[in-house]
Simulated assay, not measured.
Amino acid sequence: MLLVSILIDETMTNWSKLQHAYGSAVDLPAFLGALSPNAEDPVWDELWGRVCHQGTVYSASAPVLPYLLSAAREWPPVARVTPLSLAGAIVISPNVSGNHDLQPHRSTIEGLHRLATETTASIGLSSTDFIYLLQAVLALEGDLLWGQHLHRLASGEFEGKCTSCGIELLVGVGRYGSFVASEDWVNNRTVARRPLHPREVKDLDETARRLHTYAFAASQEEVAQWVPYVFGVGTCPACRKYFEVAEAIAAVD
C-alpha cells in the first residue's frame, strides 16, 4: 500500500497543545503519517472523525491542511478526492469548538484550491467523486451554500423549503429524476412529485456556469445535465407558487 511520504516535524506543530473531537491531538501525527490513497482505508475515518467530527472543527483541524495538500499533490486524481474533500470540510465548517484559526494557512488553502480546480479536468472520475470534488472547490473558496450542500447531488435529493409558504420540500435532482415533493417519495411511491424546470445554460449564474463548464470539460455528461435543474425553478406542491430551486435549498439553513 502506497503511503503518503510526509515527514512530520513535531517541532513545527505542537500537537500536545491542540485539541480534536476526542481530546488531545497528540495522536494525529500517527494518522497523518499513514495517509493512504485508498479512500476505503480506515485511516480516513479515524482522521475525519477527529478533525471534522459531524462537521465540527477544532484547534487541531486547520494544522492538518498542509498534510492533506502534500498527500493530494503526490497522488493521482482519483485519490485526491478524499483529502481535498476533508480540506474543504475543514475550511467551510461553521461549527467551531475552541480556537480554529485559518489565517496562518491561507497559502495552503490557495494551493488546495488550485489543485482541486485542476483536478476537475480529470477524465474518468465517478460522478459521485466528481460532485464531491466540485464541492471541495467551492468550499475552499468559502461558498457557504454549495461548499456544504452540493454533495447531495450525488444522492439525488436536496432538502429545501418553499420561499413562499415555508413548507419543507424534498428536491430530487439526479439519477431519480428532477422533481419536488413535500413528503417522503422513496418509501411512498404514490406521493405527488411536481417536475422541476431547468435554467437555460446561457442564463445560469456564475457559480452554476462554472459547475456546468467543469462537468462538460471532464465528460461528466450526467452532472452537466443535472446542474441546470439545481439552479432551475419548481412549483410548490402546497401553495402552487414558483420557487427558485437554489433559493429553496438555501432557505433550509
Rank of each mutant, 00 (worst) to 15 (best):
M1D: 13
L2V: 13
L3Q: 12
D9Y: 10
D9R: 15
D9T: 09
E10T: 15
M12V: 11
T13G: 01
S16D: 10
K17I: 11
K17W: 01
A25P: 06
V26T: 10
V26H: 03
V26Y: 02
L28H: 02
A30P: 07
A34Q: 12
S36K: 06
P37F: 01
A39L: 10
D41W: 00
V43I: 10
D45A: 13
E46F: 11
L47S: 09
L47Q: 05
L47Y: 00
W48Y: 07
G49A: 06
R50V: 07
V51R: 03
G55F: 06
G55N: 11
A60T: 11
S61H: 02
S61L: 06
P63F: 05
P63D: 08
L65T: 07
L65P: 01
L69S: 04
S70Y: 04
A72W: 08
R73I: 08
P76A: 07
P77S: 01
P77N: 02
R80Q: 09
V81M: 04
V81K: 03
V81L: 05
T82G: 05
L86T: 05
V96K: 15
G98T: 04
D101E: 12
L102F: 07
L102A: 03
H105N: 02
H105R: 04
R106D: 15
T108H: 02
I109R: 00
L112K: 00
H113D: 07
T120W: 10
A121Q: 14
S122R: 08
D129W: 00
L140R: 01
L140K: 03
E141R: 12
D143P: 04
L144F: 14
L145C: 05
G147W: 05
H149G: 14
H151L: 09
R152L: 12
L153H: 09
E157C: 13
E159L: 14
E159R: 13
E159V: 15
G160Q: 02
K161L: 04
K161W: 03
C165W: 08
C165K: 01
G166V: 02
I167Y: 07
V173I: 10
G174K: 09
R175H: 14
Y176L: 14
S178H: 15
F179A: 05
F179Y: 07
F179V: 06
F179E: 01
D184F: 15
W185V: 03
R189F: 04
T190P: 11
P195S: 12
P195K: 02
H197F: 14
P198E: 10
E200L: 15
V201I: 12
K202A: 14
K202G: 11
R210S: 15
R210G: 14
R210T: 15
T213R: 09
Y214E: 13
A218W: 12
S219P: 05
S219I: 00
V223H: 00
V223C: 03
W226K: 12
P228L: 05
V230E: 00
F231P: 02
G232C: 02
G234W: 12
T235G: 01
T235M: 07
C236T: 04
P237C: 09
E244Y: 07
V245S: 03
E247N: 13
A248F: 00
V252A: 12
